[in-house]
Design a protein around this nucleic acid. Sequence first.
RNA 1: CGGGGUGUAGCGCAGUUGGCAGCGCGCAGCGUUCGGGACGCUGAGGCCGAGAGUUCAAGUCUCUCCACCCCGACCA
Length: 567
Amino acid sequence: MRQSTLFGRTLREAPAEAQTPGHRLMLRAAIARPLAAGFYTWLPLGFRVAKKVERIIREEQDRIGAQEMEMPVLTPAEPWKQTGRWEALEPITFRTKDHNGREFMVSYTHEEFVHLHAMQEIQSYRQMPAIVYHFQSKGRDETRARAGLLRVREFVMKDAYSFDVDQAGLEKSYAAEHRAYARTFERMGLDAISVESDTGAMGGDVAHEFQVLNEAGEDRIAICTNCDYKANLEKATRKIAAKASADGASPATPISTPGATTIDDLERTLRLPASAFLKTLLLRSKDGVVAIVLPGDRAANEPKLRKLLDVANLEFANDADFATVGGVAGFVGPIGLRNARVLVDVSVETRPYVAGANKKDTHLRDVVPGRDFSGERVDVHDVREGDACPRCGGKLEIKRGIEVGNIFAYGTYYAKKMNATFEAEDGTRKPFVGGSYGIGIGRAVQTIIETHHDDRGILWPPSVAPFDVHLIALPVTEPEVRTTAEKVVAELETTGLEVLYDDRDESAGVKFADADLIGIPLRMTVSKRNLKEGKVEIKGRSSADLELVPLSEGLARVRAIVAAWPR
RNA sequence: CGGGGUGUAGCGCAGUUGGCAGCGCGCAGCGUUCGGGACGCUGAGGCCGAGAGUUCAAGUCUCUCCACCCCGACCA
């Protein structure tokens, strides 16, 4: 490929909107360009990387016996309505109608449709286990696209779906995908860790996310510094040490706290730490008001709450709700609430606290949970840095991560709703037991950049680099240089190597700077200077060392280097 | 969806009390250079995000809308 004809130019400066290092380099190196918020075009360089990422994924899926197919982007409404997702996904999907008014959705994922196909193609238990997958565009009308390719509104995902006869089968398929994912990410140079994740509102038992720890990530991961416990903060828990009981505590007593409506106010007024207080949140659920009791120094975890309350969105109680339960805004406490389901976080210890009195400008001191009020014990708090690991008691640390893949065992959730069954060994009809397994291609590509760059540009892992060799002719106007360079390019290409040939009439500085920016792993320079000695220069992108080799040995040397690369 | 910010040439930006729309990079032509983003000369490139208003006069003031970015919310 001649660089003079390459569609896509490098940028000396990144557009102002690009914030993360990967986003900036992705734009500067002409990997992709935005078309609208959250919609990107792959330029030729980026497209080559995306195809290599896909190739690795394909090889690893094929290795575990998954079969590639392809389902459409636009999907009919009916199956979505059958599973209830037509409505549930309404806010975050793109929809359209055909000329007859039939409704379609730009697919969000393909569980519904792969089940339709499974019903048609799999009649008997003898045909399972089966895993199918495809690479297909997904549409998600995210309210906030961000950080270039990391969160977009249309993207290609590899989604695989397993079908098994029972839970044991599903576990095997799940484990096979888990192993395939580990190999897949390793091959593309991503140091992905598998973390436990929330299964979401769709039920299911087990889910893992593959996270690459990086500051550009939007997920927060709790990681044990002692054992191998790793969990998304949406799900992470902690070990809570048993505390001494509150024997001998005084009875609860009202104290005057005029205007102190927040934990901050109380800390100042009463000169006590946040942990000395109880905070009580009033939320709405389908069945009425729910009171959440937490220690004053602990934040509620919204995903945990949503799952617990089985609601899509958390809603705070309104004025009417306050009246119904007898709460007073700013002075809510667990004692004396009426008509409210009371949930007490497991972080709340059995010891005296200061809590709201449900009376204006008043709190109660020496409120002892269990003695003065009771409620269902739940885990709805945010785990934080330094908390104890739920498995081993070691220290947890919190890191940001980019979710590059997700595997999810949903069991019979879809099959039951869609009545997707097969004939089992005992002659009865049974629902398919399934899982789904996704990897976002664009996100993976940018994550590779986020984690493989220096201050000059990208350092592609060879397995996904857009080209193997960047050949630079200096100066290209010199006939001997040009002739030699083109001969070398032809020879390299004949041996199957992919070469980007910089045949532009540019200064050495421009060419080297572009080569560093684009980040092809091997750079070969054919120059007037070195040609006088009959030599060519070879340099690895990630190394500072130059190698001068005789022209006649250049080809063999490059082939040897490339042969040693992990693929 | 809440809060904040930005829209002026392909990219980065300046534009004062309202008075000729600019700079750097990039781009084109010619010449000089030629191993780390070279230099000179000449030149092209603008509905100043859109609409309405105020004014003799609007990039600049007012209103409405749109787009994009950041934080949060949301997110198989």
